[in-house]
């Protein structure tokens, strides 16, 4: 079985249950979005997958092999996280050199080319990087590693709009040329929604949804209009959340609505991923669908 399989993983830090019986699969050669609010457990999940921390329960399999203590399995993954794991006094070019030692498929030429495009001087030392350029450097390492599984934990932290634009384009270029599995973990959903194929939504350590974006949004609609009419129409339907402004009401539904069944006076529109995510993970929101 190809892919990263997380089976029934639980992890607690003291009293906090960071992951609760999490099972999720990242299949080969797809771009995934791992979406969750701050503190939902995204980083913890990544850290368990890459064996940086140990789960209390459950196991992780990479292409069918257990990942723990397994060099060949672990080196199919390259992960970038917010934190820095390189010695502060190392030069970026040295970091590249050593990454290549551990990831033999690492493309140094490509890394240099990307550094040029982003305007990053590789003679700098790790400690001399700003937050944005720290992210950029790690992005470059990840994309150049040519590992089968690329995990990006909050890749766009600190990146200005131009660099974010470049990141998505370069990611898509790379993915088109060398298909691999990409998991983008983020709470910035709007930008990322165009790029991701499959969605995994995590809330407070639990996986709420795992599906393709298309499937998820095929049954996600927004009804707006006069409050009374809206209520009448949406009664008994799967409601994710509601918003009111005066006599005007908006209801978010997670079921399919046939356009022709809509009474005149009510507006129907599709939910985008960000709206869907917000409604699904709102604590004050409606029921979970």
């Amino acid at each position: 079985m190809k892919g990263i399989e997380v089976k029934n993983v639980s992890k607690a830090f003291g009293k906090v249950n960071a992951l609760r019986d999490v099972s999720v699969t990242f299949e080969k050669e797809k771009i995934y979005g791992l979406l969750g609010r701050n503190g939902a457990g995204k980083s913890t999940l990544f850290n368990v997958i890459t064996n940086r921390i140990f789960p209390d329960e459950g196991m992780v399999f990479i292409d069918g092999e257990t990942s723990a203590g397994n060099d060949s399995a672990l080196q199919k993954i390259f992960m970038m996280s917010e934190k820095n794991y390189y010695p502060e006094t190392m030069r970026l070019s040295e970091v590249i050199r050593w990454t290549r030692e551990f990831y033999p498929d690492f493309d140094t030429e490509y890394a240099r080319e990307l550094a040029g495009r982003f305007g990053l001087d590789l003679r700098k030392k790790v400690k001399g990087l700003s937050t944005g350029y720290g992210s950029i450097f790690k992005i470059i390492l990840t994309l150049s590693s040519n590992a089968d599984y690329l995990l990006f934990d909050e890749p766009i932290l600190g990146l200005d709009a131009n660099h974010r634009d470049m990141f998505y384009k370069i990611l898509l270029e790379k993915y088109s040329q060398n298909p691999c599995t990409v998991v983008l973990s983020t709470h910035l959903i709007e930008e990322v929604s165009g790029v991701i194929e499959d969605v995994v939504i995590i809330r407070q350590g639990e996986i709420l949804k795992q599906a393709s974006q298309e499937e998820l949004l095929a049954n996600a609609f927004v009804i707006t209009g006069n409050a009374a009419e809206v209520d009448r129409f949406t009664e008994g339907k799967k409601i994710l959340g509601t918003e009111s402004l005066g006599g005007f009401k908006t209801v978010y539904l997670s079921e399919f609505v046939e356009k022709s069944s809509l009474p005149s006076g009510l507006e129907l529109s599709k939910m985008d991923l960000q709206k869907y995510f917000i409604q699904l993970t709102n604590h004050e929101g409606g029921e979970m669908a």
């Binding site: 771009i31 898509l172 165009g194 194929e197």
Partner: peptide
């Protein structure tokens, strides 16, 4: 895909 920034 790259031009529109959408999944291939």
């Amino acid at each position: 895909s790259v031009g529109y920034k959408i999944n291939p």
